[in-house]
Design a protein around this nucleic acid. Structure first.
Length: 424
RNA sequence: CGGGGUGUGGUGUAACGGCUAACAUGCUUCACUUGGGCUGAAGUGACUCCGGGUUCGAAUCCCGGCACCCCGACCA
């Protein structure tokens, strides 16, 4: 994309009503825009990051047998009454509204009820199970206090996966597969080294659930981490009994602040029973489906990545989620240089790179570099008169993270970029 | 939801109850410059969140509302 066509602008300063680092940087760089407290719109750069995160997640979900769907946001009261979750005393963060004829509706904050209800039309026998169904869908939660930029919003995109199994054993096996998939997702998203599988309270069907907690001061959870074993315990279940059970010693644990970027949960028959999602077993008996739920807040993950990956100049995107692969920066000068940059822009795209091309004619080099630092693409290629000496044409390749610069001859640039891509 | 704080051009800030609400940045135009947010000049842009009140006089004080931020509680 030509940067001259990008409608968003960068800012020197963040609006004063944003104190969270993730929102400050994302707003300054033009990725997102705040509409209200806890409500953000995604601009072209931000939407690209969201899409890249979705791709990482989608690949992993499909690899473990997930089937993607998209359920409605508007929710009928009836099925939620069956599970007891319509009541404001039970679930206090509903956004509720009404039809013109006064029929009550809610905006979905999760989708166990509608998906279970939907599946009643499709699940008859143990032969129809298991089913692993997921979606990327906007959730609405009337949080009493939205905070921390996009880490905790009132409207946000969530990947929610639900598993439907015939046996507890089958459910448990899938649970482990999701756990492994989540580890891969967070590793691919660039925060694997600081994200820990964390034991948390499990609800009515399990002693524990598992959270994926990324260490950051911006988080709102306290966890106790054993870095050697790569696991942690949430403060909510941190006690001597649990530590003994998990074979963990207090002395090996470090208290840390963290943000929950993913969560997996055993639901048992908590929803299938009241909603009567039943199947006929091999022995002819009717049994409730055994369920699990597995969530990742996509914007929260994006915000967490920014919290973890930035410096004083701006964002430093992991290659896997950056909105573009390469920031091609043309420092204005001769016409010849301009046409070299244009050609490189086309060539890079021809071999499959996503390129943000800073072709702005009236912007000085310093401002372009400052913007590029802020936007945070992992690799820059700088094209300028400085490096056009006769027939010896070189481009500067700069690594945003290390600041390291290497000069690459024109005829080697595509090879070099491919090497970079494949080393990922 | 309890507690605390803040609302001033697009953005960030300033202004004792008293001059035409100031400065920076942004944006427009001209000149100059062209590798780290140049330089100079001229412009543009604000019912000081909304509604009441006190006062000769309110951005400033008081009351009510709304919005936003922070701490706590909550997080199915």
């Amino acid at each position: 994309m030509r940067q001259s066509h990008l409608f968003t602008r960068t800012r020197r300063e963040a609006p004063k009503d944003e104190t969270a680092k993730n929102a400050q940087l994302l707003i300054r760089a033009g990725f997102i825009q705040k509409m209200q407290a806890g409500v953000y719109s995604y601009l072209p750069l931000g939407e690209r990051v969201i899409e890249r995160i979705k791709t990482i997640i989608r690949d992993e979900m499909n690899a473990i047998g997930g089937q993607e769907v998209s359920l409605a946001s508007l929710q009928e009261k009836e099925m939620w009454t069956k599970t007891g979750r319509w009541d404001d005393a039970v679930v206090d963060n509903w956004f509720k509204t009404k039809l013109k004829n006064d029929t009550e509706l809610g905006l979905g904050f999760t989708h166990e009820e509608p998906l279970s209800t939907l599946l009643k039309d499709h699940i008859r026998s143990f032969r129809d199970l298991p089913a692993y169904i997921y979606q990327f869908q906007t959730k609405f939660r009337n949080e009493k206090r939205a905070k921390s930029g996009i880490l905790r919003g009132r409207e946000f995109l969530m990947k929610d996966l639900y598993s439907f199994s015939a046996t507890e054993d089958g459910r448990a096996q899938f649970y482990e597969k999701v756990k492994e998939a989540y580890v891969r997702i967070f590793r691919k998203a660039g925060i694997g080294d600081r994200t820990f599988v964390t034991f948390a309270s499990g609800g009515s069907f399990a002693q524990f659930s598992h959270e994926f907690q990324m260490l950051t001061d911006a988080g709102e959870d306290i966890i106790y981490v054993n870095k050697e074993k790569g696991i942690a315990v949430n403060q909510e279940v941190y006690n001597d009994d649990v530590l003994a059970q998990l074979n963990l010693k207090k002395d090996d644990l470090v208290e840390e602040k963290a943000v929950e970027v993913g969560n997996i949960f055993n639901l048992g028959t908590k929803f299938s029973e009241p909603l009567e999602l039943m199947f006929q077993a091999e022995d002819g008996s009717m049994q409730p489906v055994i369920m699990g739920s597995y969530g990742i807040g996509v914007p929260r993950l994006m915000g967490a990545i920014v919290e973890a990956c930035s410096d004083e100049k701006g964002i430093v995107w992991p290659r896997s989620v950056a909105p573009f692969d390469i920031h091609l920066i043309h420092v204005s000068g001769s016409d010849e240089t301009a046409s070299r940059a244009d050609k490189l822009y086309r060539d890079l795209q021809d071999v499959g790179f996503e390129v943000l091309y800073d072709d702005r004619a009236l912007v000085r080099a310093g401002e372009k570099f400052a913007d590029a630092d802020l936007i945070g693409l992992p690799t820059w290629i700088v094209v300028s008169d400085k490096n056009m000496m006769g027939d010896k044409v070189v481009f500067e390749v700069k690594d945003r993270k290390s600041g390291e610069v290497t000069n690459v001859a024109e005829d080697e640039i595509l090879v070099r970029m491919n090497l970079l891509r494949n080393s990922q």
